[in-house]
């Protein structure tokens, strides 16, 4: 992945603060949940460096709510693999927002547009975002680098609430990747 040439904004395009990659994964049959099998299921969809390149990829993707089965989109900064073990993530954590079925596509779009537009105002802290399509709910997660930095995680939570415009009783939980590794479950 790191050997790929980095994308560059084309003439007249609007550059993003960071380059990004979109990944897709679908849970394989069987019950193995090792990090190796997770890694194997990650498929790189594309990379982009500008607003226009983002739309060029995103517009061709199936909307999250129209996917079936147990699958995830991951949108991460270029160079960060969407895995707990990546060096950018291993001291980090994520905000988790559980959504009723039907809200996933709209909330995912609002989340990633805020991330690409640098609306979180937490410097280099944001690593990436995930939407997980599950049988009874859709789950958004926003990953950051430093789980122990409470000022940053609180600011991310407040911005998330604002940009997702969710009902006030929506439950948000923060989980460190270290805890996810220990209990070997993501949510």
């Amino acid at each position: 992945f790191k050997l790929r040439p980095s994308p560059r904004p084309g003439p007249g395009e609007h550059p993003l603060q960071f380059n990004y990659a979109i990944w897709f994964s679908r849970k394989s049959q069987g019950k193995t949940s090792s990090s190796a099998s997770y890694d194997q299921n990650l498929k790189l969809v594309g990379t982009f460096a500008s607003v226009e390149q983002f739309w060029g990829i995103y517009s061709h993707l199936v909307r999250p709510s129209d996917l079936s089965g147990h699958c995830d989109y991951h949108l991460f900064k270029e160079g960060i693999r969407p895995m707990w073990e990546d060096s950018a993530n291993n001291k980090g954590g994520k905000w988790i927002v559980r959504l009723k079925k039907g809200l996933g596509s709209r909330c995912w779009e609002n989340l990633i547009l805020a991330m690409l537009g640098e609306q979180f105002m937490v410097g280099e802290e944001i690593c990436g975002a995930v939407i997980s399509i599950r049988y009874q709910e859709d789950i958004l997660a926003l990953w950051n680098r430093t789980a122990c930095d409470q000022v940053t995680t609180s600011r991310i939570r407040d911005t998330l609430k604002r940009i997702l415009n969710l009902p006030p009783n929506t439950i948000m939980e923060y989980k460190t990747h270290n805890d996810s590794i220990k209990d070997n479950s993501s949510f």
Binding site: H14, P15, V51, W55, S59, L113, L116, G117, E118, Q119
Partner: peptide
Amino acid sequence: GTKIFYERNFLMQCRNSPLTR
């Protein structure tokens, strides 16, 4: 360097730009 911020509405406008393929 300078930070590149974009508001949601601006990003949505770019979706319809002729540069977006």
